[in-house]
């Protein structure tokens, strides 16, 4: 008998009689505890900002019409020389004066792994939205914004629209109907990468980005 059948047989033959501590669980547990009081987008984005600040996420509030000029300012302030953009980025042209190089992620990683790991200072990505309660960005990497953009470069700049804020992860997945189908990779990101494995001392920038800049666009 193969392992699969043996395992499933053992599970099916089990003589489990009761459920949990004697009480029968309804077909699905109730999620009332996940419900939250209604809040405005402004309140949610304030909560998001507070939570992000606690994990060293840098939130910069920007009015929609100033987005491009403020991105320029961030690039200048952080002395970014090589920037990675999506082929669909609307800013390809506008940064060129400031930078040594704008790279577009338009070919498979295998052909330029070394350069991605060694030469890029920062990447700009979009986000699907934010989660207020935990200070979290939601990303669905795609063909035009591959997974490694938000992971390998030392600085990750993420553009988040204030209108795309949800109170919790649970609200977010329901709002966007995630149970209908997931992409190959979906991500929650809450701050730059960190570790506390050396005597619980918090150190930022271990394997992922060292800095996370969130450009919070107010519409």
């Amino acid at each position: 008998m193969n392992a699969r059948q043996a395992i499933l047989d053992k599970l099916q033959q089990s003589s489990l009689k009761r459920i949990g501590d004697g009480d029968v669980i309804p077909d699905r547990p109730g999620f009332q505890v996940m419900q939250r009081e209604r809040k405005s987008n402004a309140q949610l984005s304030q909560q998001f900002e507070n939570m992000m600040a606690k994990v060293k996420g840098e939130v910069i509030r920007v009015p929609q019409e100033e987005l491009e000029s403020r991105l320029n300012a961030i690039i200048e302030a952080k002395a970014i020389k090589t920037l990675l953009l999506s082929p669909e980025s609307p800013y390809k042209a506008s940064f060129s004066g400031l930078l040594d190089e704008v790279r577009i992620y338009d070919k498979a990683i295998e052909s330029w792994k070394e350069a991605l790991f060694n030469d890029i200072d920062a990447a700009i990505t979009s986000t699907l939205g934010g989660i207020a309660e935990t200070g979290t960005l939601v990303l669905w990497p795609s063909v035009s914004e591959p997974r490694l953009m938000s992971l390998v470069p030392p600085i990750h700049i993420a553009i988040l629209y204030e209108s795309q804020m949800q109170p919790t992860f649970w609200h977010f997945m329901h709002h966007h109907n995630w149970s209908e189908g997931m992409p190959t990779n979906a991500l929650l990101i809450s701050g730059p990468s960190k570790t506390a494995d050396i005597e619980q001392t918090l150190a930022y920038g271990v394997h992922g980005p060292k800095e996370l800049v969130i450009v919070l666009v107010e519409e």
Binding site: M51, E133, T134, G135, A186, L188, I189
Partner: peptide
């Protein structure tokens, strides 16, 4: 409150 990454594959 949450870890830096929650990676859904």
């Amino acid at each position: 409150p949450i870890t830096t990454y929650f990676n859904m594959i």
